[in-house]
Design a binder for these strands. Structure first.
Length: 291
DNA sequence: GTGTTTGTTATCAA
DNA sequence: CTTGATAACAAACA
């Protein structure tokens, strides 16, 4: 599940594509794109990629002609880049290129939804098993509106302050987990990092948001920043599907304290980790440590 | 065949 | 209008 650290990892990798030109585009799954393949081709082919940005879990590719290509990976999206060199190595040796080494199989595969060819001979593959992810072309005004309406403050930015968080939480009667998952209120956290952040803060995910104390909110801000920073440093968490732009898995799974550890021992108190369903999501916590 | 997985939106209710 | 709760989406796997 690509959340903020995973999308940030991909963004940093794909920075290698900035200043390259898209020389060809192929759309294999029409539903994946906001417009027709013809429109995408017309809008993108011949254009230089001038910057890559990220807001929450959304990737923003800034094109020279003033259009923005939004890429959302949702649950199972992947962006895999193979440079010309990678492909040549892959084509000539038995052990093949890095994506094949780490994940297996050649690209494109049956989950490839779009292919971008870049100047210099590299190819970017957008794979998405479940087809929840999308490619969306927008102009500046639409982009601004989308960012304005759908993304709250996110960890590791100056806007992510205890003061702001207190204001967000104090009026919400629903459980804290649902609030932290809501991208309009707080952007970037998903199911894994919400569970981890709440464990680090010793707050039970079922607690009503307005019952979280001011001191706890300050800890929540600090711990979330720490957690997200560390996860980025380890190139994200791979639980099942996520891989980086080279097709490699993230290394943060080894640091997870509660997510995916149902029935296992809490690393703080030794008691068993619980798993419940909350906000429609699998939710992991220590019933002893988290109040 | 059934249930489960999750990011986001749609839908309906209060 | 705001908030909240839940279904729906898609595909694969146990």
């Amino acid at each position: 599940m690509p959340e903020l650290p995973e999308v940030e990892t991909i963004k940093r990798d794909l920075n290698a594509l900035v200043n390259k030109k898209i020389v060809a585009f192929k759309l294999l799954s029409p539903k994946t794109a906001s417009h027709s393949a013809a429109f995408f081709k017309k809008s993108l082919v011949g254009q230089k990629l001038i910057d890559i940005q990220r807001r929450g879990k959304l990737l923003i590719l800034v094109m020279q002609n003033g259009l923005y290509l939004l890429i959302h990976l949702k649950m199972t999206g992947q962006l895999i880049y193979q440079s010309r060199e990678t492909k040549i190595i892959g084509g000539h040796s038995l052990s093949s290129g890095s994506y094949e080494k780490s994940v297996g199989g050649k690209l494109p595969n049956k989950h490839t939804r779009a292919i971008f060819n870049f100047s210099g001979g590299g190819q970017l593959f957008f794979n998405d098993l479940r087809k929840f992810g999308y490619l969306k072309l927008v102009k500046k005004e639409e982009l601004d509106k989308i960012l304005q309406n759908n993304y709250g403050p996110e960890p590791l930015t100056p806007e992510f302050t205890a003061t702001k968080l207190k204001n967000i939480l104090k009026s919400r009667k629903t459980n804290i987990k649902a609030v932290l998952l809501n991208q309009k209120l707080i952007a970037g956290l998903g199911n894994i990092y919400v569970d981890e952040a709440l464990f680090a803060t010793k707050i039970k995910p079922t607690r009503p948001a307005n019952k979280v104390k001011a001191e706890e909110i300050e800890v929540l801000v600090r711990e979330s920043n720490k957690l997200i920073k560390k996860a980025i440093n380890h190139r994200g968490t791979t639980f099942n599907n996520y891989v980086d732009s080279k097709g490699k898995k993230g290394n943060f799974s080894q640091f997870l304290q509660v997510y995916g550890r149902k029935g296992e021992k809490c690393l703080v108190c030794g008691g068993p980790i619980s798993r419940i369903k909350l906000a429609g999501r699998g939710t992991h916590y220590c019933p002893n440590c988290q109040k």
